[in-house]
Simulated assay, not measured.
Amino acid sequence: MPSLSKAMCFILRHHPEKFGIVLDEKGYCLISDVALAFQSQEAYRDVTERDIEREVRECPKQRFEIHGNQIRCRYGHSALAVSYSLEEPPVILLHGTHEGAISSIRKEGLHPMGRQYVHLSEDLHFASMAGKRRGKLVLLEVEALKAFQEGISFYRAGEGVWLSASIPPSFMKFKE
């Protein structure tokens, strides 16, 4: 049985329609609808709204957010466009990636690569988690404030997590 977090991503990000879930324009749906979707599956029939809320609180990758009685995938992981408020970022943000991506990033910069946004972090922990998935971790320092001052948009998406559409290589320091 897949983890509850991965199953929630499958439902909310990839196939809400298969579970009778309709996301609003911001990617939200009722937590109760997600619980019902789980309960319709034999392997998850005992999942409750409290289980879902606990998973959101305890998920180290902060994949989800709850507002009132609604839930959505964070960081542009929704099937719909997820929007955040434009904010001034810290001086430096980190991006975790893998060795195989470095030559492309040096030439073209960071791009969402099938997501809605590039994911950045204020701390080493989150950047490391993101970068370790596909090989040897490489951390990039992004001169976020400088990029912001030169017209690159940044959005705060959660505790220590930032998003941007694309970042040119001129705003990066490669730490290999």
Rank of each mutant, 00 (worst) to 15 (best):
S3H: 07
C9L: 15
C9V: 11
F10P: 08
I11H: 00
L12H: 01
P16S: 03
F19P: 02
I21C: 03
V22A: 04
V22E: 06
E25Y: 11
G27N: 05
Y28T: 02
L30A: 02
S32Q: 02
D33N: 07
D33Q: 05
V34K: 06
A35L: 03
L36M: 09
L36N: 01
F38K: 00
F38V: 00
S40W: 01
Q41A: 08
Q41S: 13
D46H: 02
E49W: 10
E49S: 05
R50H: 01
R50G: 00
D51R: 02
D51A: 05
D51Q: 02
I52E: 02
E53P: 00
R54W: 12
E55F: 04
R57C: 08
R57Q: 14
E58F: 15
E58P: 07
C59M: 06
K61V: 10
K61L: 15
K61P: 15
K61D: 14
R63Q: 07
F64Y: 08
F64D: 01
E65V: 12
I66F: 04
H67S: 10
H67Y: 12
H67P: 03
N69P: 05
C73I: 01
C73K: 10
R74S: 13
S78C: 08
L80C: 13
L80E: 13
L80W: 14
L80N: 09
A81E: 15
S85W: 15
L86I: 11
E87M: 09
E88P: 02
P89V: 04
P89A: 01
I92Q: 10
L93Q: 12
L94F: 11
L94C: 06
L94N: 08
T97F: 06
I102K: 01
S103H: 14
S103P: 12
R106G: 03
R106N: 09
E108L: 04
G109N: 00
L110Y: 00
P112Q: 07
P112T: 05
M113D: 11
G114A: 11
Q116G: 07
Q116F: 14
H119M: 14
H119N: 12
L120D: 01
S121A: 13
S121R: 05
D123S: 12
H125F: 10
H125T: 14
S128I: 04
S128Q: 06
M129L: 14
M129T: 14
M129G: 09
G131R: 05
R133S: 09
R134N: 07
L137G: 00
V138C: 11
V138L: 12
L139E: 03
L140E: 09
E141V: 12
E141H: 15
E143Y: 10
A144S: 08
L145F: 11
A147C: 01
F148M: 06
F148A: 08
Q149H: 07
I152N: 00
I152F: 04
F154R: 01
Y155W: 15
R156K: 13
A157C: 09
G158T: 06
G158W: 00
E159Y: 15
V161C: 13
W162L: 09
L163I: 08
L163F: 13
S166Y: 15
I167M: 03
S170R: 10
F171T: 01
F171R: 01
M172D: 04
M172K: 03
K173W: 15
K173G: 00
K173L: 12
F174V: 02
F174S: 00
E176F: 08
E176Y: 06
